[in-house]
Amino acid sequence: MKVSFNINGEQKTVEVSDGNSPLLWAIRDGVGLKGTKFGCGKAACGACTIHVDGNAVRSCSFPVRMAEGKEITTIEGLSNDGVLHPVQQAWMDEVVPQCGYCQPGFMMATAAMLDKIPNPTDEDIDNNIINVCRCGTYYRMRKAIHRAAELNTKKNNSESTQ
């Protein structure tokens, strides 16, 4: 079957033999965007987190047929014309990644959280950000999430005064 969706602002159509197969592979091998990672394939680690219509979704457990007509954002589309998303900027500022493999999933989850909770408390972070990082970058991530919230607020304020 063919499935069409908008990904990072571009309309794409992928061909799959099973509509229930994971959207993850349609993104990685169909569209060719490798930033969304395969970690477990069981919706446990969060490395494949993307946004579907603005909500965080683990693409390894999201049937590709359900993506029909949806707006999808991946890590490649989080930045805007080369300008990093506040979450990415904060990740740079705090030098978060080590191996880096899990980081796109964390950044996508964080961006989704900040949309709904602009100023998360430490408890909000603990409850919402439950992806897995093996290098143990959680300590810097927490700092980066708070910083991203600040950058985001600043950005929104300056946009609303323009």
Binding site: N20, S21, P22, G41, K42, A43, T49, N55, A56, V57, R58, C60, S61, F62, P63, M66, A109, T110, A112, M113, D115, K116, I117, D124, N127, N128, I129, I130
Partner: peptide
């Protein structure tokens, strides 16, 4: 579920044999 982690982050409208979710 929560803001960044709702039921639908992993569970969809039918069983997923690939993920076992």
């Amino acid at each position: 579920g929560l803001a960044a982690y709702s039921c639908n982050t992993c569970h969809s409208d039918q069983n997923n044999d690939y993920s076992g979710v």
